[in-house]
């Protein structure tokens, strides 16, 4: 479970990137964080993961405050950043081994899972190449494999489906579902309404740093038809892609 309490963040004096955000993300569900480009999704996620300091408010992950108990909190979640251009000079296999070491994955588990995951994603044959040579989608996949390797209880993914081909996109969605069924937390952001409709149990909509809506898919649909400003938003989100 993730709790976001009255969180505010601004990069400039005039405008708040995230404004007094309150959100509880329950375990056992897939939670979608929907909003157009520049809405404040990545900023929120970076505060959740300890990359950005929080101006006001607090965030806890399974009860651990990310600011006060960073190590405990960080052991619990796995994070897929919006741009997968990390560790470019490592080979795929070196990266996965590094993650295995950092999160104490036993080597027999590692053997088995690396093969399974990378074969599922179709990057097994590229493991001996440097990540530099990977395409955008392959980079995304190696990072997702790293997260899956240490089986964190909480997944935090920033626009994970952008740039994936249909097959990989399908497998990732399946994995997210499985994870939620095990009673774990899955939190991901997207700017595409269809993704939310296919995948989510619960959804929160954010625009210009403010939370516009939080509820189930059903509730979202009724709200869209009744609320004029949300309908505008709806159009914006469907026009993408």
């Amino acid at each position: 479970m993730i709790e976001i309490n009255h969180v505010t963040k601004s990069f400039s004096t005039s405008k708040k990137a995230v404004d007094n955000l309150n959100l509880t993300i329950p375990a056992g569900k897939i939670f979608g964080f929907l909003g157009p480009n520049g809405a404040g999704k990545s900023t929120t996620i970076k505060m959740m993961t300890g990359i950005l300091p929080i101006d006001e408010g607090s965030i806890t992950i399974n009860g651990f405050d990310i600011t006060k108990h960073p190590i405990e909190a960080k052991k619990i979640f796995g994070y897929v950043p919006d741009s997968p251009d990390l560790f470019l000079r490592l080979k795929g296999i070196e990266y996965l081994n590094f993650i295995g070491d950092v999160y104490d994955v036993p080597s027999d588990v590692r053997q088995e899972k690396i093969a399974y995951l990378t074969k599922t994603f179709g990057i097994y044959d590229a493991l001996n190449d440097t990540i530099q040579t990977y395409s955008h989608g392959m980079r995304q996949k190696i990072i997702v494999s790293g997260v899956l390797l240490h089986e964190p209880k909480v997944w935090i993914l920033d626009e994970p489906l952008t740039g994936l081909d249909p097959k990989s996109s399908y497998s990732l969605k399946e994995m997210m579902r499985e994870h939620a069924q095990k009673g774990y937390t899955v939190f991901f952001s997207t700017h595409v309404l269809e993704v939310v409709e296919q995948l989510c149990d619960e959804v929160a909509i954010i625009n210009e740093g403010t939370l516009l809506f939080h509820g189930t898919l059903e509730e979202m649909r009724t709200k869209f038809t009744s609320d004029g400003s949300l309908e505008q938003m709806f159009l914006e989100l469907t026009n993408h892609e």
Binding site: T49, G50, I51, P70, E72, K74, K75, L86, V102, Y103
Partner: peptide
């Protein structure tokens, strides 16, 4: 700029 990669990992 590689710091950001390590910030989300459980390092002291």
């Amino acid at each position: 700029d590689d710091m950001e990669n390590y910030l989300t990992m459980p390092f002291h």
